[in-house]
Each structure stands twice: as structure tokens, then as C-alpha cells.
Amino acid sequence: MHEGSGAWQLVVSGDPALYAIVRLSLAVSLSAVALAALVGLPLGGALALARFPGRGVLIVIINAFMGLPPVVVGLAVYLLLSRSGPLGDYGLLFTPTAMVIAQAILITPIIAALTRQTVEDLWLEYRDEMNAMGVTPFARLATLLYDARIALVTAMLAGFGRAAAEVGAVMIVGGNIDGFTRTMTTAIALETSKGDLPLAMGLGLVLLAIVLAVNASAWGLRVFAERRIG
């Protein structure tokens, strides 16, 4: 592959800067997924089970937020974390933590919406049985999330894919600082602006390979789990 030869050379030669970028990208996006799952799984599950006025509106809003523009999220987090913003005292702007926060906000709706759908479907199947066993509402939520765990991995992967691929939010709140907040996507944007399109393309292929590898391992896990627990 001629286009990406520069990038592949970096991969093959074990370029430390490239590996640092890859490591940071993975760390940021995985942290964001963990954080978003912490919020999105219970939220989606609760939305599936609870009935209250305004539920429909909330579901529509969360579904719509799956398409939140990263730049808008980035800007909002920027204004929030800026020294002149309400959370400025934490000094988090232009740090990996800021990028984690922005990505977590971006993907929480995705995880919550997919979780709601999954849990609601499962609830239809489980409702009578759980009522007959006298399961309390809170335990219902826990059971449904647990029993939907394989399907929920897919929801988290969708979140990871979105986080790993987005550039708008991390560029704004991370600042693309060399060796500190530079991720795969911001590095690609930078190389593009420097006119080194082959290197940018090569980095893009490396990113694609990483996302593929993460998905492949999740798929393997899923197949293994399905064989084990059905």
C-alpha cells in the first residue's frame, strides 16, 4: 500500500510517538466508554422499566442526542472547563480528562438509548416470570442489565466506535498538544493540514485497524459467551 507506507513504517519500526498516540486514544476512548456506561446503562434500563409522565419526551431527546455534533459538545465542555467557566478551578481544559468528559457526554446517549431498547425487549419476555418470583423493581433492573449483558456489549462498542472516530470534540477540549493530548484523529487532522496526506491516510488506516481489533475481540467474547451462557 503506497499511500500509507509512511505510517506503516512507523508501526513496523515501533515508533514510540505513534504508540503513545495510539495508547492515549485507546485510554481516552475506553475511559469515556466506562464512564458513559456507568451512567448510560442504569439510565437506559430505568427508562425501559419506569413509567412516568414525560417518559416519551425523554426517550425522544435521548435518541436525538445520539446524533449530537461532536463540535457542539466540545464547545460546551470547553466553556464549562475553561478557566473563565464554572468548572475552571479544576484546571482540566487541555488535558486527557477533558477529552474523556467530552467523549463520555457524546456517547452516553448512544449507550442509554440502545440499553433502553434492549432492556425493554427483554422485559417483555421476563415480566411475568419476574413478577411471579416477586422480584423488586431495583432487582429487576439489575437482572435485566445482567441478562442483556451480551447485547449491551454491542451498545458499548457503538459508543467506543463513535468516541474513537470523533475529532471535533477532542480537538477543542484537548488542544491536540503533542505528546499530551494528541490522539489518532487529531494527529490525522494535523497531518492533513500539514499537507502530508499519505501519512494522514496511513494513520487513518492504523486507527481503522485498532477499531477493527477492538470489535473483533468483543465479537470473540460474544461468541464465547453465547456458547457458555446461551
Binding site: L24, A27, S31, A34, L35, T95, V100
Partner: peptide, 9 residues
């Protein structure tokens, strides 16, 4: 805690 756990920060 989350970011430290994953080595992001």
C-alpha cells in the same frame, strides 16, 4: 478515577 484507571491521565 476512571481516567487514571485506564491510563488516560
Amino acid at each position: 478515577a476512571a481516567t487514571v484507571a485506564f491510563g488516560a491521565a
